[in-house]
């Protein structure tokens, strides 16, 4: 690992200005993705701006109107164990409880995961299906505008996620087919029903999380797993690698979408 300068700001404003003053710095939240990246020298930031000092400011779970609001530094363990999350969007607690493993969940944060935008991370499927908005130090970004490509988001250089707001669905379910070692999703599907509309978010299958309009239209007519049987998922943009070929991932998208509909509550 290359060396870097380590900063410990105490407020959001401090963190953003500190980061702005660096030539090639990065924010460090729970570090469960970033530290492995640094160990492999896949990134060599000049500076790391630790967000640990912002924990009090940015670690919370609350309900505002029809939205579940989660502070960016809330850990996966806190989301998984939260009675508020279990009551308002139980499938989101299920998702958080399946991220990595217990130790990773004790340290990894929702803001870090969303900003990192790993193509096989769990949260991106939830962001898309639950029509989330991502609040940053300077603006609000809609779910559909957020994920751009593998590890690429709409965040500007030095922009800091402060909060994620999920819209409470009528019912929703998330299921994934995970890599047995890392628990990353080979395919993960989040299905959420909002009155007459349905949103389907898929992670793991492609290089960036995506929605499935054909599935959404069919499920909007009838929220029944059977309606997905005849709809073909295009293999064209799916990840094609030794562990799971594109045609297999396409089939798994359908299988796990059906199971997510069955599990929805």
């Amino acid at each position: 690992m290359e060396n870097f300068v380590f900063h410990t700001p105490k407020t959001v404003a401090d963190a953003v200005s500190t980061r702005k003053g660096t030539s090639g710095g990065k924010f460090l939240a729970g570090g469960q993705s970033l530290i492995p990246v640094l160990k492999l020298d896949l990134a060599q930031p000049t500076d790391l701006v630790s967000l640990a000092g912002l924990k009090k400011e940015l670690s919370y779970i609350k309900v505002e109107g029809d939205e579940l609001v989660i502070g960016a530094l809330t850990t996966h363990a806190d989301v998984a164990g939260s009675d508020v999350v279990k009551k308002i969007i139980p499938s989101l607690a299920v998702l958080a409880s399946g991220i990595g493993d217990a130790q990773v969940r004790n340290r990894g944060t929702i803001g870090g995961s969303v900003a990192h935008a790993d193509p096989a991370a769990d949260y991106p499927a939830a962001i898309l299906a639950l029509d989330a908005t991502i609040k940053t130090d300077r603006r609000t970004i809609k779910a559909d505008d957020f994920f751009k490509a593998m590890f690429e988001t709409a965040l500007e250089d030095g922009e800091l996620i402060t909060e994620v707001r999920f819209k409470k669905p009528e019912k929703a379910g998330y299921l994934k087919f995970n890599n047995p070692a890392s628990k990353y999703a080979i395919v993960g599907v989040y299905v959420a029903k909002y009155g007459p509309n349905v949103r389907v978010g898929v992670t793991g299958a492609a290089t960036v999380a995506f929605r499935l309009p054909d599935f959404e239209a069919a499920l909007a007519k009838s929220f029944d797993p059977k309606v997905l049987d005849g709809i073909k998922v295009s293999e064209e943009d799916l990840v094609n690698e030794r562990d799971a070929k594109a045609d297999y991932r396409a089939q798994m998208v359908t299988v796990f979408a059906k199971r997510a509909v069955e599990a929805a509550h």
């Binding site: 380590f6 410990t8 460090l28 570090g31 469960q32 530290i35 492995p36 160990k39 790391l48 630790s50 640990a52 363990a77 990595g100 493993d101 217990a102 130790q103 990773v104 004790n106 340290r107 070692a181 890392s182």
Partner: peptide
């Protein structure tokens, strides 16, 4: 050394964490 095996698990402020995936300066 890749955050998978858990042999490096320690308690930090009472919660189990992988000490191979945390900087010493973060334990300050």
């Amino acid at each position: 050394d890749t955050s998978q095996c858990g042999a490096c698990t320690v308690f930090v402020d009472g919660a189990s964490m992988k000490s191979c995936t945390m900087l010493a300066v973060e334990a300050d």
